[in-house]
Amino acid sequence: MAPIIGKAKAAVDISIAYLTGIRHLFHRPYTLRFPQQRYAVEKGYRGRHLLHLDRCTGCGICAWICPEKCITIVPRGQRWYPQYFYGRCCFCHFCTDYCPEFALEETVEYDIAEYTRDRLVWSPERLSKPPVKKDDKYVFSVDTIGGASQVPQKEE
């Protein structure tokens, strides 16, 4: 008798498993088609850095605290500014935390891949430009309704 009950229970459990799986055929997918659909990051995300040239004193604390040694201090006329090599940066943003003049800031720009290695070196001038606002029509976020969902982008 017992083996039959065991087999019946196994059959029920397997059917439940299949039904659970089949139910999810009709859910939205989690994945995004990246360049067309963008993942929404909030303000405060640790993307690439933004340098305020007027506040920077060129003290070099950012270069000292950088764990990956990706910052070099380069001269620009009479003053000195940090230059980032994003091939090494691990985006820990200790430089932002330790800057005594609040000259560094984190931005939401995270897709900074380049075709050549020397394009990954960001000069102080390039760092000082605020990130370009991307087309906000296709911003998505993973939500509790199951799958990726479109979220309206906030005005800044």
């Binding site: 995300y45 640790r46 985006f91 820990c92 943003h93 976020s141 993973v142 509790t144």
Partner: peptide, 17 residues
Amino acid sequence: LFIDLAEKLTGARITYS
């Protein structure tokens, strides 16, 4: 879901420091 939460809290998705 939790990576998103951690990103809101720390600013990074996986390696928070």
